[in-house]
Design a protein around this nucleic acid. Structure first.
Lengths: 211, 211
DNA sequence: TGTCAATATGGCAGTATCTGCCACAATGGC
DNA sequence: GCCATTGTGGCAGATACTGCCATATTGACA
């Protein structure tokens, strides 16, 4: 957990040495293996040993990268955290709270605005899986909770302890989070159903409705 | 999971025979044991065997009542579901969606409006534990997710499939849920800190802020 | 370039979680 | 009071996860 906190706070060094690059690569390989096995069979029917062996690592090593098999299938977590970490410094403590937090969380949808981008395609793949697998939804809300708590701490520190009402800060963050997730889900559902979908438009509509 | 769906839909029969009453009693005993052991030690340090033995049942029976030790400590789940099930028939399909859903979820805070009531005291006890234990927070958001999905289905059925935009329904529910949880958390925090706290006022303020 | 500290990996043992299955006991309707 | 239904416990087994140690790889620095 402290590792994840650091993840949010620290500015990502890009290719810091071969060591870190290999680590990210291994991480990606595990995720790919998990996604494929989950898609083929099911989360319940897939064991950690299966994933580890498919990824070419030992089960022991698997648990050094992910706390559970469910988390291995949710790489978006990292992208989200990165987006938030990038946006944190730009939050204006003087401006309207809801607006600022919505702006921050809005960064999370940016990588997927182009339906044909690789990022969007990957997100769709993961979304499909999540919709089919309650276990993955549970893992997702868990990650979401942790992220929310970290953001709350970070924003409280940035805005000043007494400058912001805890209730309002909490609500601003949770609502922003809910708006983003509902938008992404709706977008993915529409695309999966075969129809067209404009994430930007959906997100704008969600923001308006939540206001 | 289908058991829980039924739980939400069915109108609770009160004391349907000795059998059901004993079942509720056993359930309560397990919960009490779990809460006490968690408070004494920690969730991690407490095993299912500990809880089961303290409650006077076998571990095998424990798992017939709760899916995990964390869930055993969150009995509020049932109260929340009951409140929502009670309120569902009163939802007016013709009225404003956000307002109706907020009204429905508002039922969840009613039992705790009086700080001195037994229900409030129990909620405070659980809240204190939840604030200390990330594992319980994770279990809580998981329950919240399931409840949210059930409510969404129930409301979609009640409002008519084409009458309501999925995005708006989803947002209305999630926001209402977030408002209630933030209110209860704030209320519990304030009371725990020793100060006075008016749940009704907090909830009104949260609703206003979220509007 | 060679050496050393730091770090990643794998294996192993051990504990805890959770489930299916079976036998047995308690209950409640008739 | 009989019988179908339901709750309970025990057992075996699979899986998830962790601590510990040995080993190998990497990267910094002399």
């Amino acid at each position: 957990m402290s590792a994840r906190t650091a993840e949010l706070r620290a500015i990502k060094p890009a290719g810091q040495g071969l060591r870190e690059r290999r680590r990210q690569q291994t991480r990606a390989e595990i995720t790919d293996a998990a996604l494929e096995l989950f898609a083929q069979g099911s989360v319940a029917a897939t064991t950690v040993d299966d994933i580890a062996s498919a990824a070419g690592v030992s089960p022991r090593t698997f648990f050094r990268y992910f706390a559970s098999k469910e988390e291995a299938a949710l790489p978006v977590h990292q992208e989200f955290n990165a987006a938030l970490a990038d946006g944190l410094p730009a939050v204006d403590p003087g401006s309207d709270l809801r607006r600022e937090v919505n702006g921050l969380y809005g960064l999370m949808v940016r990588p997927y605005l182009d339906n044909d981008s690789p990022a969007a395609q990957r997100m769709l793949q993961v979304s499909r899986l999540i919709r089919k697998e309650p276990a993955l939804r549970a893992a997702m809300v868990r990650q979401n909770l942790e992220r929310t708590e970290e953001v709350q701490q970070a924003l409280a520190a940035r805005l000043g302890p007494e400058r912001t009402d805890p209730l309002e800060l909490r609500l601003a963050i949770d609502i922003a989070s809910v708006v983003v997730r509902a938008s992404l889900d709706t977008w993915a559902s529409q695309l999966e159903a075969g129809g067209p979908a404009d994430l930007a438009a959906i997100y704008r509509r969600a923001l308006e409705f939540a206001k």
